[in-house]
Design a binder for these strands. Structure first.
Lengths: 243, 243
DNA sequence: CGCTCAAACTTGGTAAAACAACCTGTCGGG
DNA sequence: CCCGACAGGTTGTTTTACCAAGTTTGAGCG
């Protein structure tokens, strides 16, 4: 049969050059072979070489300078640190995959901040689903999910049972909405007495509160996720290029 | 003279299509004209059309599906929110551009977390430069900069005078190091008595502590920036695509 | 009428060629 | 000795051409 599709030539070239950079054949700071040399060595056409080098440049492996050549920068170190995005996991993974306890599931009045993120009137009603996540037999995080009432109708989110499907897939198949990006706000505050008790944390330790507004491609807010992290047990990490 | 360089054709095509999407000529969800139609309308070749459409896809304006066509997604809403990166501004802007007060400048023993970010031994010596930034006649943030001693030698950072040049440019011209990316850690904690006093904040309000490890292209840490933000007055915002 | 399959569309990938813009040496002439 | 012109290298942009792969449509046949 041999239906294994071979990757396109330019992708093979990308991998070959990446291997050479990682192995030290093309050390950082050195000049990459010119387009003409690569054409001859790999027996491909110039558009193929250029396509491969464009990918490498966009990924940060090399940088090019018209008239001089392409310089090796090395394996992009930034890609090594994967940011931890609280809330991401709760949107794609089913609730049954992480142990936890559902502590609230019903319609409530929206807090001001959440209402603003949902483009809704303050104190208007929305559906709230709140869970405490348990790791190593200890409560570690509280995850809250707010949905407009029209988005919660006809879904299993209103039930008190753990979801056996990711929220993202659940809403896509039943309501036809497609998650696109998340606008995230990070703040810190002291826990309420109830929160400290539910999370098993001292009352004098602050909380990291992460609000994630999930929106579709046009920017319309769909749901809001709030993750509460005791600051003595969690921290957030991210990486970005300096402008 | 007419030395104004005209943008390349594919970039012009990108702008033209962006305008049509924004004006509603190509509403979201609709099918973009096929490559052949665009070739005829704009009188360009196919690679030029493809290059323009590739840019639009990478920027999130459209998505393509082999065999069917290219679908309009609309103006990428994510790009509208620009993340606020504390520390970024302090690396590029001169200290004289924002009012503040220098409260420390000298060699100190490294705290554990900063030593780890610098790949240095804990309690080893490094140079610390600490400033309180004043906005609207009120202290609002504390910015600390740690540098390895060999990187601070021969610079004006060790002086008690405000820098008239950005730190990034300062270190590039005098020490030849080039900033590439930042690995950021966000935590929350209670302020010390001294910090609360210097920042003019209540003692029962937590601090958002942002640690930024500035590294070069190979991942070697260069300097560490710490920004302390009273949580009742600041919050962090960011946006990212849902995977 | 319903099903099958081929034709005609779409985007994705490769090849060959040419010109333009930019950099860096070398080789003269002043 | 200095400086400018020039040749030869590099990447950037554009064109023409062809084939491959996925999707839709409709003609034709049972």
């Amino acid at each position: 049969m041999s239906l294994e599709s071979v990757p396109p030539k330019y992708a093979q070239l990308v991998q070959a050059l990446q291997r050479r950079i990682e192995s030290g054949t093309y050390p950082p700071g050195s000049l990459l072979p010119s387009e003409h040399q690569l054409i001859q060595e790999f027996s491909v056409s110039r558009p193929t070489v250029v396509a491969a080098l464009r990918v490498l440049r966009e990924q940060g492996w090399i940088e090019s300078q018209q008239g001089k050549g392409r310089f090796v920068r090395g394996r992009p170190a930034m890609a090594a640190v994967e940011p931890n995005r609280p809330g991401q996991a709760y949107l794609t993974n089913p609730e049954t995959s992480t142990p936890g306890e559902l502590i609230e599931a019903g319609a409530v009045a929206l807090p001001n901040r959440v209402a603003a993120l949902l483009d809704a009137q303050p104190k208007s009603k929305a559906f709230l689903r709140r869970r405490v996540v348990i790791r190593d037999s200890e409560p570690t995080e509280q995850v809250s999910l707010w949905l407009p009432l029209e988005l919660s109708e006809g879904t299993s989110l209103t039930s008190g049972e753990p979801l056996r499907e990711g929220i993202r897939e659940h809403l896509r198949s039943r309501k036809g909405v497609r998650f696109d990006h998340i606008v995230e706000q990070i703040t810190a505050r002291m826990p309420t007495a109830q929160e400290a008790k539910q999370l098993g944390m001292p009352k004098n330790v602050p909380l990291l509160a992460v609000f994630g507004a999930v929106r579709d491609a046009s920017g319309r807010p769909l749901v809001v996720v709030e993750v509460l992290l005791p600051a003595d047990r969690h921290e957030l990490e991210d990486a970005y290029p300096v402008s």
